[in-house]
């Protein structure tokens, strides 16, 4: 059989490189191959689904930003400067599309793989670990999020909707947002058992999109409701992206970043734990 293994590393040599490293029992350090698998499968997937992730925020921008915006005129940003309505909602739509893309990939896609086709069982019979699977799936979601974010920026910038150079950072910002939502999304999905429970995710997502300061400032709400919304992830995402594209940068940004770092860490922890419980029990 082995005519050709003289010059290449064997599977054993590759696996043994991680011996003694922390987490070697659930992490092989090779989550990238899960992204490679996703790409192979993606080549045959429907382009309509892919395109919709890009087109959706653009449509919102046209309908609300320019359509509704022409009636409204302008709004003021966090530090009292007047901005056009379109420039006000554009970063919110960017944050939202990062969230939606990440949630779609990490919930529906992952749910199908978990319950049909035994893909994860198959992967976990190789020398990969559960954290590789979690990181790989989330990494794929990020890659898509990144592509959408760049695409959206390419549309927004010539329209004059990104007045500040800080706006460039809105792209890594979108990736951070996608990472946070994908981690938590996959974590939650790994605990869900049926489609009814999956629908609950959507039930939560839509109002969060509409009411998180996406289309108007929170100040119109009573104080208690403002507190509630300020505890939700999308609000942090929108605040962060808006501060960047409008160039209203302050230390408060770090608070939003920290919020997402916690989401990422928590999501990964529970996903890894749950995958082990499900497929390595």
């Amino acid at each position: 059989m082995s005519l050709i293994n003289a010059t290449v590393d064997s599977a054993i040599a590759i696996a043994e490189r991680r011996r003694g490293k922390i987490g070697a029992e659930f992490y092989a350090g090779r989550g990238l191959v899960i992204i490679e698998r996703a790409f192979l499968a993606f080549k045959t997937s429907s382009w309509a689904v892919v395109a919709s992730g890009f087109v959706e925020p653009v449509f919102y921008l046209l309908a609300f930003g320019f359509g509704l915006g022409s009636l409204i005129g302008g709004v003021t940003d966090g530090s009292g400067h007047a901005v056009s309505y379109a420039a006000y909602i554009a970063p919110a739509l960017l944050a939202t599309s990062a969230m939606n893309g990440a949630i779609y990939d990490s919930t529906w896609n992952v749910f199908f793989k978990m319950h049909f086709g035994r893909l994860y069982q198959t992967i976990l019979a190789t020398s990969l670990g559960t954290l590789d699977v979690a990181l790989g799936e989330i990494g794929w979601a990020l890659l898509r999020g990144l592509t959408y974010a760049i695409g959206f920026m390419i549309v927004m910038t010539p329209l004059g909707l990104i007045p500040s150079w800080w706006g460039i950072l809105a792209i890594p910002g979108a990736v951070l947002i996608a990472f946070g939502f994908a981690s938590v999304g996959m974590g939650i999905t790994s605990y869900l058992k049926n489609f009814q429970q999956m629908d609950m995710v959507n039930f939560f997502m839509l109002p969060m999109f509409l009411f998180s300061g996406t289309f108007y400032p929170l100040s119109i709400y009573p104080q208690w409701l403002q507190y509630v919304i300020e505890s939700l992830p999308l609000w942090h995402a929108i605040q962060m992206e808006r501060a960047l594209t409008l160039g209203v940068v302050g230390w408060g940004l770090l608070g939003h970043v920290l919020y997402f770092v916690v989401m990422i860490a928590g999501g990964l922890f529970f996903t890894t734990k749950r995958l082990s419980a499900l497929f390595l029990r």
Partner: peptide, 23 residues
């Protein structure tokens, strides 16, 4: 303790075929 490392030595043919149907 050595799950991934041991699995590198093994070839596994599960009772149920489980191919990646998208590929």
């Amino acid at each position: 303790k050595f799950g991934p490392e041991i699995r590198a030595h093994l070839g596994v043919v599960p009772q149920q075929d489980s191919h990646d149907r998208e590929l």
